[in-house]
Design a protein around this nucleic acid. Structure first.
Length: 258
DNA sequence: CGGGTTTGACCAGCGC
DNA sequence: GCGCTGGTCAAACCCG
């Protein structure tokens, strides 16, 4: 099965997102690093620095404060990752108080149209607690709660797109109150065997991921570009072992303007 | 047997 | 108040 990405480095932000100053340079850098086959950690580190520089250059004056989370996860079965881009509906506009709403983000997952399951693999473990047919869509909507932590408030709704049956729309609400997915669970390696290696690599990558999280979630354009780059790398690393029939698209759920 | 799924019932919010 | 709709509950069921 051909593997494609809904997010394309060759595509630029559409009209609903203001072009980020330095965006082109950043995309070129992503392309260059991909072509040089740099490893993921290096890629993240370099990109984080460069993106921070961009932010400083822009005098990012907090006109769009966002609570955010970002989790780049490899899911249990080694499927491609989703950069969970919480697109924060509790943004604050100066002089325009807004009600605080839980973070909502939406992820599009391309699947085989013949596939009937409502499963979006995103690295977290979900417990389905309901299914409902909604009025505006003949396809049923499935309701999930995060089961990685008993007290985690995050919920997920998954439903086929009414327009495109090959597209699953997963809507995430809330923020995980625990560390992201257990990388080992469900994978091929045992927790004991992978634990030590995981710990070394995990600490390093965690720092970068956290840095990326703070930077990435401020900018929709860059989020798209980097998601494509990282996903592409992970896909290429796991292509020998895993069939990827899900294509991910991160969608900004808010209509915020830069 | 434990954890996840299914599915009908129930509840709350909203518009009329 | 009533009906519609989306969201949640929980018992029954399934599966490894």
């Amino acid at each position: 099965m051909e593997k494609t990405l809904d997010i394309d480095l060759n595509s630029k932000p559409t009209s609903n997102t203001t072009q980020t100053p330095g965006y082109d340079e950043l995309i070129e850098e992503v392309k260059r690093m991909k072509s040089e086959n740099q490893n993921l950690t290096d890629l993240l580190e370099i990109l984080c620095k460069k993106y921070d520089d961009l932010i400083k250059q822009r005098h990012y004056s907090g006109h769009r404060k966002m609570k955010h989370t970002a989790a780049g996860d490899t899911d249990n079965s080694g499927h491609s990752s989703i950069l969970h881009c919480c697109s924060c509906s509790d943004e604050c506009s100066p002089g325009r108080p807004r009600e605080i709403k839980s973070n909502v983000s939406r992820v599009h997952v391309r699947i085989d149209p013949s596939e009937t399951t409502l499963v979006v693999r995103d690295g977290y473990t979900w417990r389905k607690y309901g299914q409902k047919v909604t009025r505006d869509n003949p396809s049923p909507r499935a309701y999930y709660k995060c089961s990685l932590a008993p007290t985690c408030p995050v919920k997920k709704k998954v439903q086929r797109s009414a327009d495109d049956p090959s597209l699953l729309v997963a809507t995430y609400e809330g923020q995980h109150n625990h560390n992201h997915t257990h990388r080992n669970c469900g994978g091929q390696s045992s927790p004991a065997a992978a634990g030590e290696e995981d710990d070394r690599v995990g600490k390093t990558q965690k720092v970068f991921v956290e840095q990326m999280a703070s930077s990435l979630t401020r900018n929709h354009s860059f989020t798209n570009a980097l998601a494509a780059a990282i996903t592409g790398r992970i896909l290429s690393e796991t292509a020998d072992n895993v069939n990827h029939d899900q294509l991910f698209q991160i969608e900004d759920d808010d209509n915020y303007a830069l």
